[in-house]
Simulated assay, not measured.
Amino acid sequence: MKEIDPGSAIFGELDRAAERLLTAAATLSDTAMTAPSRLPGWTRAHILSHLAAQAPALERLLTWARTGVRTDQYADRAARDSEIEAGALLPAAALMARLRDTTRSWQRAVEALLAPAWNATVVPFTGETCTPRRILVIRLRELTLHLVDLDIGLEVSDIPSTARDVVQDDVVGYYTEAENVPAFTLRDTEGMELDRFNGGGPVVTGTRAELLAWLSGRRASVPHAPGGLPVLPPWI
């Protein structure tokens, strides 16, 4: 599981990723919000509602780390899903206001977290045991990839390299530990080997953006694989 040390660099990445998403989504009308996103079964409003609800949910994990009192992200999956559905029905202006408010509250909370809490153990909704360093990666990943999922003209290739590399390390780390991953080697177009899965095998080559788009299921262009792309198990 990818974790990253707190500090001005990652706080800045989170703030810039949030501003990119908020700026892009602010152009959406009520009608555009109800259009399908790239995620099956979700409209654009569902994605933005999810991000709006995720920020206070992740804040609850920070509270857990700070106080030592277990504070789960959500009561259960049904509560999470119903909150997303309710938010997706809001008018565009109201949904964007909620997203701005919860995003800024999250940013303040994460920047105010004191040193001892960064080493505390918490359990996100996905079930892994981690420290708040992991939460930094989770939020950056969600802000970054869900902007692409909105299907408003932005691709993985538009993600700034500093944010992209954090997310790519996270996705690669997932497949390193996942079951039923075929043997293959991941290499960028500059010849750098990024990882070998199950001892290595056929080489998949592409730009960093192409590789992240493929690994995360968001392919705008296809990496080069002479024997065909390996079939990967689903990523979260």
Results as ranks from 00 to 15, higher is better:
Pro6Gly: 12
Leu61Ser: 12
Thr131Val: 09
Ile4Leu: 12
Gly127Tyr: 10
Leu143Arg: 00
Ile10Lys: 00
Asp169Pro: 00
Leu89Asp: 11
Asp195Leu: 03
Pro36Ser: 12
Glu128Thr: 12
Trp118Lys: 08
Gly201Phe: 01
Thr43Cys: 07
Gly217Arg: 01
Glu179Ser: 14
Met192Gly: 00
Thr102Ser: 15
Leu232Val: 08
Leu61His: 01
Leu186Lys: 05
Thr185Lys: 02
Pro234Thr: 14
Ala18Asp: 07
Val123Asn: 07
Thr31Cys: 01
Ala18Trp: 11
Ala35Val: 01
Arg133Ser: 09
Ala209Asn: 03
His46Glu: 03
Leu147Ala: 05
Ala25Asp: 05
Arg134Phe: 14
Trp235Lys: 00
Met1Asp: 03
Asp5Glu: 15
Leu22Ala: 11
Leu28Ile: 11
Arg219Ala: 14
Ala117Tyr: 13
Val231Arg: 09
Val181Asp: 02
Leu186Ile: 13
Trp42Ile: 04
Leu62Gln: 07
Arg108Leu: 14
Leu90Met: 13
His46Val: 10
Ala79Pro: 03
Asp195Cys: 07
Leu89Gln: 15
Leu61Tyr: 04
Thr144Arg: 00
Glu85Val: 11
Ala55Gln: 06
His224Arg: 10
Glu3Phe: 02
Leu28Pro: 13
Asp165Ala: 14
Leu186Gly: 07
Ala220Ser: 15
Asp5Lys: 13
Ala115Thr: 15
Ile138His: 06
Leu48Trp: 08
Leu136Met: 10
Ala92Trp: 00
Ala93Pro: 01
Val148Ala: 05
Val171Phe: 05
Leu51Pro: 02
Asp149Glu: 09
Gly200Trp: 08
Ala209Leu: 07
Glu3Asn: 09
Thr67Glu: 11
Ala52Pro: 06
Phe11Gln: 02
Met1Asn: 03
Leu211Phe: 05
Val171Pro: 02
Arg44Cys: 04
Arg141Tyr: 04
Arg164Val: 06
Ala92Gly: 13
Leu143Val: 00
Met96Trp: 10
Ser157Tyr: 00
Thr121Lys: 13
Leu95Gly: 05
Asp149Leu: 02
Ile47Asp: 00
Ala32Asp: 15
Asp5Arg: 13
Thr27Glu: 14
Arg80Ala: 07
Ala26Glu: 11
Arg70His: 09
Glu179His: 11
Arg164Asn: 03
Thr129Pro: 00
Pro40Leu: 04
Arg133Ile: 01
Ser37His: 08
Thr63His: 08
Pro182Gln: 10
Thr23Pro: 02
His224Phe: 10
Ala120Trp: 06
Val122Ser: 00
Leu21Thr: 05
Ala94Pro: 00
Leu99Glu: 06
Glu190Trp: 01
Leu136Cys: 03
Pro91Trp: 08
Ala120Asn: 05
Val167Ile: 13
Ala109Leu: 09
Val222Tyr: 03
Thr43Asn: 02
Ser29His: 01
Ala53Cys: 11
Val156Met: 04
Tyr74Trp: 15
Thr162Asp: 15
Thr27Phe: 02
Leu229Phe: 06
Gly199Asp: 12
Thr131Phe: 08
Gly228Asp: 08
Met33Asn: 08
Ala112Val: 11
Leu99Ser: 04
Ala86Asp: 13
Leu14Met: 09
Met96Phe: 13
Val222Phe: 01
Leu95Asp: 04
Ser105Ile: 08
Arg141Ala: 10
